[in-house]
Amino acid sequence: MRLAGLVALGVFLLDQASKYAVIHAMELHRRLAIDVWPPFLNFRMAWNQGVNFGLFSGEDAATKWILIAVSLAISAWVWMWSRKEAHSLYVQVSAGLMIGGALGNVLDRLLYGAVADFLNMSCCGFSNPFSFNVADISIFAGALGLALFSGRPAQKRGKTP
């Protein structure tokens, strides 16, 4: 379980450091757009008050607090579930990815009132209108990892399958 905690901390710190650098050091919140390696990688400032793709966004303060509570509840559930029994290395890493990303977005909601999204990637004639952040990538990868690997029991050390 220590691994999940270390992964969560690492993701949380990387997410917050990237947001600080882009928002404050590069002043993306004023510039709104920076072409890094068009069209593959661009910075486009977006303040997401909802969940993925802006779903459930609104100006209502209750929405913000509901999303914070849901994120914290899911993070706590994943943490407790992953501690219950021995899980594989992949499940521990996946749990850490999901928790670290969720907590990074929770802190954004507390600091800014919305989640700071800034990564925008397009390719091969497809122009992506959406922005995302490190926490979003981590949440997606963690959820995918939990779906793929959570049904497998952890291997005992020193034993071969």
Rank of each mutant, 00 (worst) to 15 (best):
M80Y: 09
S75N: 12
H29K: 08
S18A: 14
M80S: 08
L28H: 01
T63H: 13
A69N: 11
G113C: 13
R44S: 10
G5F: 07
S138I: 04
I99V: 15
Q92H: 13
G145W: 01
A141D: 08
A33C: 07
G101A: 05
E85I: 06
H24L: 05
L97G: 02
A135M: 05
V70L: 12
P38H: 14
L9M: 06
F12I: 01
N120I: 00
I137S: 15
A69L: 15
L110T: 09
I66D: 12
G58P: 03
G125W: 10
N128P: 09
C124P: 06
M26N: 00
S88Y: 10
P39Q: 00
V11Q: 02
V70C: 08
K159M: 13
G151Y: 03
N133I: 02
Y112N: 13
S122I: 01
I23S: 11
S71L: 12
L103F: 11
R157K: 10
L72E: 13
A69E: 07
L3I: 13
A95Y: 02
S127V: 14
R30K: 10
T160C: 06
I139F: 06
A116W: 03
A46Q: 13
A147H: 05
D35I: 00
C124M: 15
L110K: 09
K19R: 08
F43G: 00
L28N: 00
S150N: 11
S138H: 08
L148D: 01
S71I: 14
L55M: 13
R31G: 00
A25H: 09
G158V: 06
L97P: 01
C124S: 14
A62S: 14
V134H: 01
S94I: 05
E59L: 05
C123D: 13
E85P: 01
C124E: 11
M1W: 08
N105P: 09
Q92K: 14
H87L: 06
M45R: 06
A46G: 10
F12D: 00
N120R: 05
N52Q: 10
D35Q: 10
P161V: 06
S150M: 03
A69H: 10
N105S: 05
V7R: 05
S127H: 15
N42T: 11
I99T: 01
P129R: 02
L67F: 07
A62T: 15
L148P: 01
V22S: 03
L67W: 02
M98Q: 12
G58T: 14
M1F: 14
L6K: 12
D35G: 03
L41S: 04
L67A: 05
C124V: 10
H24Q: 15
G158A: 12
L3K: 11
G5N: 03
Y112A: 08
N120F: 00
M98L: 15
A8P: 08
A61H: 08
Q49G: 12
G10P: 08
A46V: 14
G100K: 04
H87F: 10
